[in-house]
Design a protein around this nucleic acid. Structure first.
Lengths: 212, 212
DNA sequence: TAGATTGTTAATCGATTAACAATC
DNA sequence: TAGATTGTTAATCGATTAACAATC
């Protein structure tokens, strides 16, 4: 095994893809799979797959392949998706509501434990079984919930402020949907999701015709 | 200028970030900006910024910097975000509805021109000014709309089928929210957005504590 | 044993960044 | 002219992939 501590981000992203794929395989009662099978079915290079796994140990049997159930549960453990993880959502607009109502999260052990919004018209309302709260409650609420993950779906103008509040409340990683670059301390990890960025890249591809 | 045709994907992603940033600068009446300013305010390396732009031409004046308004409009042109682009949304559940109702899209010249869903309970209903249609209408509808961009927000099980239908209807690039790897012809570009993948990567970061 | 497939090393490829001559 | 900053080349860094000995 590759004892180095530096796991490339692309490797982590693919790990999540493998996990999804393995869950589907298990549902279709496939017991064993080889790295070549993975390549055929996902398009991810077989050597890449093996290399990705090598950061975390040995998972297969030479000449045989990988046990689907075992690999699945070991990847889940690596990604800490084997135990329920509380998450807070800040911003209960269209997107926030969609996330709160998304059943896939719970299936992957992410549980939305609280929702916040500064709109007085939303505070106190119930969404997906949660009462929407004022962001000023964030700190006190999170003493109880102890969420380390926050999802930010507020407009760009409010994002930095709520990010600061979330961090003060003990959040350590942030999934940011606001189209803005958040300034955070080094110890905090942020991942940005931007529909507009995705669409912009696709839009460029339209101009150039071909490309794989 | 770097006449090579191969623009790295990360460069395109950053281009979208620059565009957003420049729009904000323009709103604050900043007229000129240097690559060092960009680094200070976005965290993106100054050389990187200059290199990214170099794929598309010359944009600045040595000793002076870049004209914000001009750079903004030229990047918009490169990404084809200077003219209204029709988009179809397939899947009008929580996420699909959120996208249909997202004003940021129109601001960036993406116009959702049709929405489809196979749920009979949704077909015929109006959402965000659009009548939800049966996916079997996709082909005929798109003869009129001529959208080349489709956003897929159906469950995993239905995603490949609707992708095929979208492609048959003339769609050339796909933004896929379904947690599945779509099989598409080489000429089609797909970008995947996966909340679960994002959360999984963040979840891993929690296990390792530090990291930037 | 022969065939298959792993885990890992080494080679390749591509993206980031530092350095600097050219230019305003 | 002196100072600032560009665009681009070259050096560095990191990720992908091919190759293969080890192993079932």
């Amino acid at each position: 095994m590759n004892t180095s501590l530096k796991v490339p981000i692309p490797t982590l992203e693919r790990l999540a893809t493998y996990l999804r794929f393995l869950i589907d395989l298990e549902a279709s009662h496939v017991e064993t799979i080889s790295s070549t099978d993975v390549e055929r079915q996902t398009g991810i290079n077989a050597a890449q797959f093996r290399k990705d796994l090598s950061y975390f140990g040995e998972f297969g049997k030479p000449g045989v392949g990988y046990n689907v159930a075992e690999l699945q549960s070991r990847i889940a453990r690596i990604l800490e998706i084997d135990q329920l993880q509380p998450v807070i959502v800040i911003g209960a607009g269209n997107l926030g509501s969609a996330l709160i109502g998304y059943p896939g999260l719970k299936e992957h052990k992410f549980e939305i434990s609280a929702a916040f919004d500064s709109d007085p018209g939303k505070i106190g309302r119930v969404q997906g079984g949660l009462v929407v709260q004022d962001p000023s409650e964030l700190r006190i609420e999170n003493e109880r919930i102890r969420a380390r993950i926050a999802i930010i779906c507020v407009p760009a103008g409010a994002a930095q402020t709520v990010a600061n509040e979330a961090i003060a409340a003990g959040v350590r990683v942030i999934l940011n949907f606001a189209p803005i670059i958040l300034k955070v301390p080094d110890r905090i990890t942020v991942r940005n999701v931007s529909f507009l960025q995705e669409l912009a890249v696709l839009s460029y591809h339209l101009t150039t015709e071909q490309r794989k």
